[in-house]
Amino acid sequence: MIAPGRDPDNAGYRGRQLRRPGRKLMWLFALAVLLPSLYGFGTKFLEFVALFRGESDGAFAITPILNYLLASFGFLLLFGWAALGGMFKNVEQPKYAMLDNEAWLDQIELSGRPGGAALPVRQPRFRLVRSAEELP
């Protein structure tokens, strides 16, 4: 069986959206985590700026912090792009598509296509595989 306790064939599973109370709870939880974290991070960052300004040799701390901020900012942008681009909708779907593709490739390999022949053009079909027996 695939993911325990889940029936991927159930349409409600694939397109499931959080209901309104659930969504409210998620936002409340997110805010409860994010606000203190932002406060803590902001305070530490101000400490860092004070150190950087207050001491002539305080600049030695700037490199690792800048490295971190640059890397994190880049990933924050990437995260935003991914979220807005729908990368997290149907978040479980790619794991089925991956197995589906792999089974398709194995099937081609076993069917003995001539060496070097081009693969047929194929877009991922996202067909859900219900059990191991379904894999060719």
Binding site: M1, I2, A3, P4, S72, F75, L76, F79, F88, V91, E92, Q93, P94, K95, Y96, M98, L99, V129, A132, L135
Partner: peptide, 20 residues
Amino acid sequence: LKKPMWSHGLSLVGFWGLAF
């Protein structure tokens, strides 16, 4: 194992957690 990951959503939490 011929079976998908237990939770793809959780795997993404792992990835973005590592990133940040």
